[in-house]
Design a protein around this nucleic acid. Structure first.
Lengths: 158, 158
DNA sequence: TATTGTTATACTCTATAACTATA
DNA sequence: TATAGTTATAGAGTATAACAATA
């Protein structure tokens, strides 16, 4: 039993593009945590801060959808960024249920700081790639894992 | 304040290769969970099962290192796979402290089943890519995020 | 002394359910 | 009736610390 000569059933990792992507992503996070240090914003919070910066006045629900977490989960992220002084909630003028999110001056300062050091981080991530290869990798990643069941953020059968 | 005309501080996501990799990885997981269904092994357990299949007799500590989790965390994975009947612990002949891990016949059946359906999953992930593009993507991902601080699985300063 | 496996414990992330106030 | 935000709670996943057995 458990004849190790037959390896035909265990090749799913070696040939898997999805696994190669996962491995690269894990390596990125290793570099990220080394690079930004233990006191930095987590990747998810950094992303949230950027998204609010790009879409000032975004609602929490819309932010949750972009982050692909639910409304309840996004609240801790928003609370945390607000407690750090990086964003603020303002009542939406058009919908009294909704909170509009904005990056504060302090938050913009943090974004500028992050942008500066992120450039070096990105250089580290792409250190072994030429400029042409980086462009190609970008293009191919964008074409990868387009989910036919979720064409517009949300399953078709929902 | 929070002048949204100045977008110079918020470009870190749009141009980030690391973020593009993360996004592709998240899309892969969306497809994966849709494809394998709610009763499937989690990706981490699938990976563990494959790794034990590839390296029969591997110790829990060595498996933890490959999975990049610590000794305590790997125990739940091993317990789960053992409870499902997919692997077994055998006392190591060379080191009485160590447990040697082996895939059972049932586990090999599961691996064969996974390999068969994973082929279709991989087709879905790479649906928009030509064969040449898949090969290129593989090659470029392997060159991405090589962590200079962790040349041999473990930080240099450890 | 160091390492392997283990347990207990805690922390983070995320989800579900139920609630309120609006729409 | 449906939606936005919130709270309470629970379930994964992972980490640290401490321990017994062995190296």
């Amino acid at each position: 039993m458990t004849d190790s000569n037959d390896k035909s059933d265990i090749n799913l990792l070696a040939g898997s593009l999805a696994y190669a992507i996962k491995q690269a992503q894990v390596r990125c996070y290793e570099i990220l945590f080394d690079f930004y240090g233990p006191n930095a914003l987590t990747p998810g919070r950094m992303t949230a801060l950027c998204l609010i910066g790009v879409q000032p006045g975004i609602s929490q629900s819309a932010l949750a959808e972009l982050l692909k977490v639910n409304r309840a989960s996004v609240i801790k992220v928003v609370n945390n960024l607000q407690a750090l002084g990086f964003i603020e909630r303002r009542p939406s003028p058009s919908d009294k249920r909704s909170q509009a999110l904005f990056v504060t001056d302090q938050g913009h300062g943090e974004l500028r700081r992050l942008t500066a050091i992120t450039h070096d981080y990105e250089e580290l991530v792409a250190a072994e790639l030429t400029a042409a290869e980086r462009k190609t990798l970008f293009r191919l990643l964008a074409k990868t894992a387009i989910n036919p069941a979720r064409p517009l953020s949300g399953r078709a059968e929902d």
